[in-house]
Design a protein around this nucleic acid. Sequence first.
DNA 1: TTTACATCAGATGTCTGATCTCTTCTGTTG
DNA 2: CAACAGAAGAGATCAGACATCTGATGTAAA
Lengths: 242, 242
Amino acid sequence: MTIKTDHRHLYLQVIDRLKDDIAKGVFKEKEKLPSEFELAKSLGISRATLREALRLLEEENVIVRRHGVGTFVNSKPVFTSGIEHLTSISSMIRKAGMEPGTIYLSSMEALSSEDDIKRFHCEIDESVITIERVRTANGEPVVYCVDKVPAKYLPSDFLSRQEGSIFTAIEESGEIRVTYAVTFIDPTGYHEVASPILECEPETALLVLKQLHYNDKDQVVLYSKNYFRADKFSFHVVRKRV
Amino acid sequence: MTIKTDHRHLYLQVIDRLKDDIAKGVFKEKEKLPSEFELAKSLGISRATLREALRLLEEENVIVRRHGVGTFVNSKPVFTSGIEHLTSISSMIRKAGMEPGTIYLSSMEALSSEDDIKRFHCEIDESVITIERVRTANGEPVVYCVDKVPAKYLPSDFLSRQEGSIFTAIEESGEIRVTYAVTFIDPTGYHEVASPILECEPETALLVLKQLHYNDKDQVVLYSKNYFRADKFSFHVVRKRV
DNA sequence: TTTACATCAGATGTCTGATCTCTTCTGTTG
DNA sequence: CAACAGAAGAGATCAGACATCTGATGTAAA
């Protein structure tokens, strides 16, 4: 029994536990999973709860269940870093085996523009913070980021910090949690601002991801525009038949 | 009672039924859903089965459940046409209010190349069909498509048809069903083959989607490379926090 | 009047244990 | 050897109970 009691729902903890076990190799590819009855017993939970977890793992393509046969671990834990998962740029760079870095270009605070009001559904006299940064991989510039966030969502001392993740700063108070984002994908050839900053030739294509980050109340809390060097980054998506 | 008995699992039928009801407006936005007990009773199923369906609907963001409060219909059925759903180019064009068309450039049948063998896990002497087409919207070229598919997956008379969806042709026999695809997103500036075909200037950016289509046995049955005019198409993704 | 606390009803979360149905294996029979 | 019947094991579904959370309401104290 751990000190820190996990207050999240049980089936979510079970999902994490099973994913961990699969990742650690406790359960190997194909076959392997014990029957629901045994698995529930060994996890110390009821079969009903285990089944809720299994159903979601099946939906995520982590496992496959066959009536009357058993539950199987799906090999290929590949696509998990696809664009449909919201991950930070830092972790993407780190996963590629390189060291992420950040160069702050500018921060400014201004009253909300017409676009801001539309985006954030905020008041006309609200303060909105705009931050420009360049993300680097092993010291080389790879992404140019422009982030906009209403000042009320950030700690008051944020502008003076000049470092740290905006994401983390927003969630710092504990009142806001970014749960999902809608990303618009937009290829660009030469971009007069981004291309020089990223030190790339005019013929190097850029991929622009415009993202609206939402909290659990479906309010936009962060708008970011990221210019990726297409020759350095690769994105993929798993598309499901509907 | 309908004649055709539905042999799919019960919880899947329940999901469809609930989605239908929401679409039809039987259950309106927010609030509305009866308690699990009542809903199960009115659907003639057990609460456990209903809960399996509800859990998946929650995962799909169709509903929201709050412990001790109730189950609510999530408004905004918006983003459903995002890139994470596998839809045909025709339907994308039609949804934009334009008339889709197809121009066949070439079809050829050849023995598998080294790449083909790697992609399809096929034999070295197998026949692979390559089809080049241009998709049009209101007569204007917007997408250049190169599709590759092992001949064994297609009806023998396919090459002589010169029309119809490759997708449909593959599934025609009833033995194969494409269940999902993995799409790699790749922006390009000028492309020496695609750009002239799409009649676009060198500075018009292209978005290349390379897709591996899988059947339910996780075999690659179709590889397609689609060049979209970036000024005509827009893609978006809903990214979930993990 | 306002605030704080206790209580309660109703909803989802979890558990137990049983039955139903599907798939696979195995042994019998012709 | 093939066809069929049965058994065993697994997931699918069911029925009902209890646990826990949330929101509303009533009541007493400030």
